[in-house]
């Protein structure tokens, strides 16, 4: 896993994505991990041919960036927010937290991963004043042994949040959404679907049953919206439109 820092003046809101282009290889949507109008950060794991090619780049190499696209996470000043990130979902949540604490929000930042070395952004979050880090790992190598959702559940028994934000594996987000719904707390969920164009024309990221393209309707959508998304937590579609279960 690497974080790439680009000289890039895009004005990006946390939760938005950019399409990253390597000529003659491919172009993929990537959630922005940080941007301030001068730099743009992307945290990318080495998981396939495209990300492998990214990892082989050297400092000074150029890539194509277009965007930013999609809807961002939103918050009001001085809110109490729980952020639940799984795996690489922590990156856009960190970006959101960075802005939210400046607006006087207090944040419980709950991240989970299979094991300690897969936890990302721990150090960055620990440095944020106003954010409290909570960690879980499947193997118990650090923090709570089990799921981050269990931490959320426990915290919610002790305190009231104004907002829950989540980004990560969909099964985890579906669990977060259920808890938020039960406790009647507003939530924002960052949906991931197979996106090609990024601006609502190709139709590859349209979800059942609403039929909306998630690249423009989302990726961040409110809890009320995912309740209409029949496939949420159940299945997604591939580049040909075929369904695959989570």
């Amino acid at each position: 896993m690497k974080t790439f820092i680009f000289d890039c003046d895009f004005q990006v809101q946390p939760g938005q994505f950019v399409n990253v282009w390597l000529p003659r290889i491919d172009e993929k949507p990537m959630s922005v991990a940080f941007a301030d109008g001068k730099e743009l950060h992307l945290t990318i794991a080495d998981v396939g041919p495209f990300s492998r090619a990214m990892h082989e780049l050297k400092v000074g190499d150029q890539v194509g960036l277009r965007g930013p696209y999609g809807k961002a996470f939103t918050f009001e000043p001085n809110q109490s927010i729980a952020m639940v990130g799984g795996g690489f979902g922590s990156a856009p949540l960190y970006f959101t937290a960075f802005h939210a604490v400046q607006a006087g929000c207090t944040i419980d930042f709950i991240i989970g991963a299979r094991r300690e070395d897969l936890l990302i952004y721990r150090e960055r979050v620990e440095k944020l004043k106003g954010a409290t880090l909570h960690v879980s790992t499947d193997d118990g190598s650090v923090g709570h042994k089990g799921y981050n959702v269990e931490i959320l559940q426990k915290l919610m028994n002790e305190k009231n949040y104004d907002m829950i934000m989540t980004c990560g594996p969909e099964v985890m987000m579906a669990a977060v959404a259920r808890i938020a719904d039960e406790k009647k707390v507003p939530a924002q969920i960052s949906l991931e679907r197979y996106m090609k164009c990024g601006f609502g024309l190709c139709g590859n990221c349209c979800v059942d049953k609403t039929g909306d393209a998630i690249c423009t309707k989302g990726p961040v959508v409110p809890l009320e919206y995912v309740k209409q998304v029949e496939e949420f937590g159940k299945y997604h579609r591939d580049d040909l439109g075929k369904k695959h279960k989570f």
Partner: peptide, 24 residues
Amino acid sequence: GYLGITASTWDNLARKGAGGITTK
């Protein structure tokens, strides 16, 4: 060629005013 991969998408556009839907 635009959007029309799934029934949900066709139906969504129909409800947003399309008079007809051509599939991909």
